[in-house]
Design a protein around this nucleic acid. Structure first.
Lengths: 338, 338
DNA sequence: CTGAAAGCGCTTACAG
DNA sequence: CTGAAAGCGCTTACAG
């Protein structure tokens, strides 16, 4: 055996005077109920030990269909430069769960190879046993191919595309938003203003859906350029608005705009007007009434769901996680009607 | 082709009416100067596209070509829960470079499979073409095996183990620390106190080395339990210490301890005493004199070095990156000697 | 220019 | 109970 080349089963077999397959059986534990004569087993193990044998993982994987690698395809940089990004906790959850299930994680950045999310880039995920997807949009054609071919995949975040055939683990923004608005209603608020960004991804649509369910009369303002004129906010309060509900997304644009306008207008919460956020505002602003988005759990559950799909377990392929309310100090009882 | 099974070269060959080997040659680019009739090539490529073919990375690797996957083995969680962690920028740099080189990234967590960094866990990295390692310590035996067998690997951070045969990309803490202390000397400081944590990993040892080179007389204090008594600091200043140099690590323990002691003692910088940090303190504390650690560049260069190693380019296998000084406002001219 | 064969190192039926 | 064979999906000599 030349130096520099790791020993293989064939080397052991030759020295121990048995077949390579026998070595495989002995070293692979006693799977499939195969039994070996003790003497044979002993000799094989001894030679293996002597040679410092270590199985070649690539060969092992090729011979046994699975790779124990799951993919993570992001339609953006995997590691956001802005660490405060809500995306980060998802990664933590994904990694945690993957490790606990003995799965390695393959990162596909999509931007690899120049073409932005070319069909070829997406196809590459097949190198793993299954793949997690994360991003605001679904490139229909390539994803459809994967789903149709039975390739196990799970979206992180609710999806309705492909006639609802995409497995996902999302956050229940509808219920959380409705509950939050209902709690405002319970505090006596009857005239609510709802501010959201100008983006129609599912998380935004779901929040609006929830708000409308709980407060059909709430008037909606879509932020055009991410800013809100001071006078507009003043006008709302003058006209009887007692509570403002703001969408919260990765960028936090809507919340920031409202917060700035309120500050500039000299309006304080909850005294002059109540404020609730459909999520969590950026960390420095503690105490804002809203709800928690279980990002980490979403990542973890997505991995578990994916592995269930890969191993063909019976499972619920579309899951919505609850977003626990955050009490906060920016929403209070509505003033008595004048 | 049954649904659920990804297409393989044999499928393409059958449909295109050529041999599997021909498919391999066409799809593998025109290696080995093999040429194909344009018509054959076209047909194969077309069928491959139709079928959404993607090479099986494990088979590719076993047949001893490349997979274009590079591994990242961390002796800890890949995504630190504490995002402020210095480790994060390294990841950003790694991903950026990997994407730009068309390499997918495989995350190996080491903790996978229960055993902490068992030899088996480390062996798994052979699935990739090469692997980046990151962590304070080097598990000698498994790493030695990899290196001996010629498997390409690169450590992020300087290593001296295995008789200096481990390729790495590190930060030049020695020079940066020496320069920082020299700059204090230039400001007139002659009695310098050096505070470090009680850990002997290379980054700590290198910093100490640099400090000692520039100021052989500097007295060293090793932090026992991460705290520094107020009286101790008062005593230093009373005894003529005009500058304190503090080690900076991930935890920031030493800096935090010194900062707290100074505050508690009512000593201000740079008026009562100058303060310099061997790195960057945690973000909220801006303006501290110290130096930048090029984490992101380290990650990026490590990837480039690894790919060079994989493709057997001539290259410098051990690189130390410069840490640019940060002027800051906590170090000033030493008071005139009394 | 193209195909058939051998082989990468292992696992898993399948014969003896 | 054990060995020889086939095969995982690919690449790379080697013949035609």
């Amino acid at each position: 055996m030349p130096p520099g080349r790791p020993p293989r089963q064939a080397d052991i077999a030759r020295i121990a005077g048995v077949s390579q397959a026998t070595v495989s059986v002995v070293l692979g534990g006693n799977r499939a109920g195969v039994r070996m004569a003790d003497e044979t087993r002993r000799r094989v193990l001894e030679v293996a030990e002597d040679l410092g044998y270590v199985p070649h993982p690539v060969a092992t994987r090729l011979a046994s269909a699975r790779t124990n690698m799951i993919g993570l395809y992001t339609f953006r940089t995997t590691f956001p430069t802005d660490v405060a990004d809500s995306y980060y906790p998802i990664l933590v959850g994904v990694e945690e769960a993957a490790a606990s299930l003995g799965q390695d994680l393959v990162l596909f950045t999509g931007t690899t190879g120049g073409g932005t999310h070319s069909a070829a880039a997406i196809r590459r995920v097949r190198i793993a046993d299954g793949c997690l997807f994360f991003g605001r949009h679904v490139p229909g054609e390539p994803i459809a191919r994967l789903v149709d071919s039975g390739f196990p995949l799970v979206y992180i975040g609710r999806r309705h595309e492909l006639a609802g055939r995409i497995p996902y683990v999302g956050a229940d923004y509808v219920t959380a938003s409705a509950d939050l608005v209902t709690s405002l209603h319970d505090l006596g608020h009857r005239t609510i203003r709802y501010v959201r960004e100008n983006d129609d991804a599912p998380p935004s649509a779901d929040r609006e859906h929830g708000v409308r369910r709980a407060a059909p009369d709430a008037v909606l303002t879509r932020l055009e350029h991410g800013t809100l004129p001071v006078d507009t906010v003043r006008g709302w309060v003058r006209d009887g608005v007692t509570a403002i509900v703001v969408e919260e997304t990765d960028t936090g644009a809507a919340y920031t705009a409202v917060r700035r306008a309120l500050d500039a207008a000299g309006l304080s919460t909850p005294d002059d007007v109540s404020l609730a956020v459909l999520g969590r505002p950026p960390t420095p602003d503690g105490g804002v009434t809203g709800f928690e988005v279980p990002f980490r759990a979403m990542g973890g559950q997505a991995v578990h769901l994916l592995v269930d799909l890969i191993t063909e377990q019976e499972t619920v392929p579309q899951r919505l996680l609850r977003c626990p309310p955050v009490a906060g100090r920016t929403a209070g009882a509505a003033p008595k009607r004048s």
